[in-house]
Amino acid sequence: MKKIVNPWIKLEKDGYNCFGCAPNNPYGLKMEFYEDGDDIVSFWTPTENYQGWLHTLHGGIQSLLIDEIAGWLVARKLQTLGMTTSLEVKFKNPITTGTCTQLEIRARLKEIRHNFAFISAQIRCDGRLCSSGELTYFCFSKEKAAADFHFTACHTVDEEG
């Protein structure tokens, strides 16, 4: 498993403050990402600050975890950016904010058709499938990603030296 370098860190002074992945957003999830073969993986600990019902992780936060990892999959595997056009989440088992100490969020590219990436994602706690998502992502051209979003590449730590 290889840690992915956050390519937007250098843009913090310009306003980078993503709720999902900015490390210095005081309210954010501060997600970090890893490449594991064909998958992109993140590990995250649910706390009481993100609950919906008593001691249960809010479904919107679960959806955000799935959406965020899909974006990172596009950045790393396709070396561009895009936007979610469709997100379907199925909640299979509750995620408790007190006893589930670490979630594993995992995404995989299923197919690419034209400018659309079709992605599957899952959230697991202690090996148990809690939520799954199917996403469609519209992928920007590499030129648009660079010009509009300052994105040039997404590397792993070992690639950057």
Rank of each mutant, 00 (worst) to 15 (best):
45 T>M: 14
6 N>M: 12
132 S>P: 01
135 L>M: 15
146 A>K: 11
20 G>S: 13
92 K>L: 15
45 T>E: 14
14 D>I: 05
131 S>N: 13
129 L>T: 00
24 N>S: 14
95 I>K: 02
75 A>D: 03
125 C>E: 10
123 I>Y: 01
25 N>R: 05
94 P>V: 15
117 A>V: 06
20 G>V: 03
101 T>C: 04
159 E>M: 09
106 R>N: 05
31 M>E: 10
130 C>Q: 01
127 G>K: 03
29 L>A: 03
96 T>C: 14
82 G>I: 08
113 R>Q: 09
35 E>W: 03
90 K>N: 12
138 F>I: 05
87 L>M: 12
73 L>W: 04
36 D>Q: 11
32 E>H: 05
77 K>A: 10
66 I>W: 01
5 V>F: 15
66 I>L: 15
5 V>C: 13
97 T>V: 11
85 T>H: 08
50 Y>D: 01
78 L>V: 02
32 E>Y: 07
60 G>F: 02
132 S>M: 15
148 D>P: 00
2 K>I: 10
79 Q>H: 03
93 N>T: 15
119 I>M: 11
101 T>V: 05
65 L>D: 02
120 S>Y: 08
155 H>V: 15
93 N>D: 13
30 K>L: 14
93 N>I: 15
94 P>D: 09
64 L>I: 07
87 L>W: 06
115 N>H: 10
23 P>I: 07
5 V>A: 12
6 N>L: 10
61 I>K: 01
147 A>S: 13
78 L>K: 08
4 I>F: 12
99 T>D: 08
15 G>P: 00
74 V>H: 01
157 V>H: 02
9 I>D: 07
116 F>I: 15
114 H>Q: 13
65 L>Y: 02
9 I>F: 08
96 T>K: 12
103 L>K: 02
156 T>V: 11
27 Y>T: 13
70 A>V: 04
108 R>D: 04
147 A>R: 11
99 T>A: 09
142 K>V: 06
143 E>P: 00
2 K>E: 15
110 K>V: 14
29 L>H: 00
39 D>N: 14
69 I>M: 11
67 D>I: 00
39 D>S: 11
1 M>K: 11
140 F>D: 01
147 A>F: 05
68 E>F: 06
141 S>K: 04
146 A>V: 01
36 D>H: 09
24 N>C: 10
137 Y>S: 07
50 Y>H: 05
58 H>F: 14
97 T>N: 10
153 A>N: 15
65 L>A: 05
150 H>F: 10
128 R>Y: 06
49 N>C: 05
112 I>P: 00
161 G>Y: 03
122 Q>T: 13
66 I>K: 01
17 N>T: 07
104 E>G: 00
43 F>Q: 12
78 L>A: 09
83 M>K: 11
7 P>A: 14
66 I>S: 02
126 D>N: 14
74 V>I: 14
107 A>S: 08
77 K>V: 06
76 R>D: 07
71 G>W: 03
26 P>H: 10
33 F>A: 08
115 N>D: 09
152 T>R: 12
75 A>Y: 04
107 A>H: 01
106 R>K: 11
75 A>L: 11
121 A>R: 03
131 S>H: 07
56 T>P: 00
117 A>R: 08
55 H>V: 13
54 L>H: 07
123 I>R: 01
111 E>G: 00
31 M>A: 09
95 I>N: 01
14 D>T: 04
88 E>C: 09
60 G>D: 04
48 E>S: 12
31 M>P: 00
110 K>Q: 13
89 V>T: 04
